[in-house]
């Protein structure tokens, strides 16, 4: 066989397999969406879940997922950003820095169920937070910190050294150079990274089943006092998220329309992640355009 013939055959096989794999994955996701989207209705999105009967919605789970993302971001963004600033602007090149980097890498490779168990042990039991949004948010923060720190550091490092040098040459403190010159320039990257990581934690479940809990108690959306036990804003209440809901409905299967509810929930989950991805691209693009104008 000539090399040209082998080349043709190999190319054919590669393309064939690649298309097959692509079609299988897209087909499966398409199936979920096709099954789920018809089930998404105003009623489905705005009514509470049912424990034993059919016709339940996902209002509380959807809200809990979003609220958890907000709480997690409030804790993790400042922390990750400051840590990233340390690593990119201050950290000397020595053993201690390498150790810190290793620690962050270890953190990023921990299975989320392990993080969930740690959260259960420390936040839920030791700190006495019980199953609560706050405990869940802290567990998600642990998952989010390494990814966010890395994306923030990457964004900071993309800013040319010349800009920093110009600021330092004017007698500005490094911190001032960082906050006034480097940070604005790195903002598109930081925001894009933050939105992408928000998408990731939106769909997280394993870290939450023993921290935020698996129950969605009755809450009132008109009670704006975050300290009231039935308020939707109360961070101390247990909260089942959308991803946990899918898992729970399927593993306990007490509702007769588990399939329909899961299909709908899975579709909502995928669409939301898609929105997060689009938002990240859009924001990054817009800010970049504004800054270069």
């Amino acid at each position: 066989m000539t090399p040209e013939r082998i080349d043709k055959i190999a190319t054919g096989i590669i393309l064939g397999l690649a298309v097959m794999v692509g079609l299988v994955i897209l087909g499966l996701l398409g199936y979920i969406l096709a099954q789920g989207i018809p089930h998404i209705s105003w009623h489905f999105l705005t009514s509470g879940a049912e424990s034993f009967a059919a016709g339940g919605g996902i209002r509380d789970q959807l809200f809990n997922s979003l609220y958890l993302v907000v709480l997690t971001m409030i804790v993790s963004v400042p922390l990750a950003l400051c840590a990233a600033i340390y690593l990119s602007e201050y950290a000397p090149d020595n053993r201690r820095t390498r150790l810190l980097r290793l620690a962050i890498e270890v953190l990023s490779s921990l299975p989320s169920v392990v993080v969930g168990l740690f959260g259960y042990l420390v936040f839920v039991l030791k700190f006495g937070l019980d199953f609560s949004l706050l405990a869940g948010a802290l567990a998600l923060t642990i998952l989010n910190l390494p990814i966010l720190t890395r994306s923030c550091e990457d964004a900071l490092r993309q800013v040319p050294y010349l800009q920093r040098q110009a600021g330092l040459g004017l007698g500005m403190a490094k911190w001032r150079v960082t906050t006034k010159i480097v940070l604005p320039a790195a903002l598109p990257g930081i925001i894009t990274g933050a939105i992408l990581s928000a998408g990731r934690i939106f769909g997280e479940a394993a870290a939450l089943i023993y921290t935020a809990g698996q129950s969605a108690p009755v809450i009132s959306y008109t009670d704006w006092n975050p300290f009231s036990p039935t308020s939707f804003l109360n961070p101390m209440r247990p909260a089942e998220t959308l991803a946990v809901h899918i898992w729970k409905v399927n593993s306990e299967g007490l509702v007769p329309d588990a399939r329909a509810v899961s299909n709908g929930s899975a579709a909502v989950l995928i669409i939301t992640i898609l929105l997060f991805n689009l938002a990240a691209r859009f924001v990054g693009y817009r800010i970049k355009r504004r800054l270069t104008k």
């Binding site: 010349l162 800009q163 040098q165 110009a166 040459g169 004017l170 500005m172």
Partner: peptide, 19 residues
């Protein structure tokens, strides 16, 4: 060091206006 750099300024090779 900040006062030093205010008294002894520096202009670099590449023009680096801030945005």
């Amino acid at each position: 060091v900040y006062r030093v750099r205010q008294r002894i300024g520096m202009v670099f090779q590449q023009p680096t206006p801030f945005p």
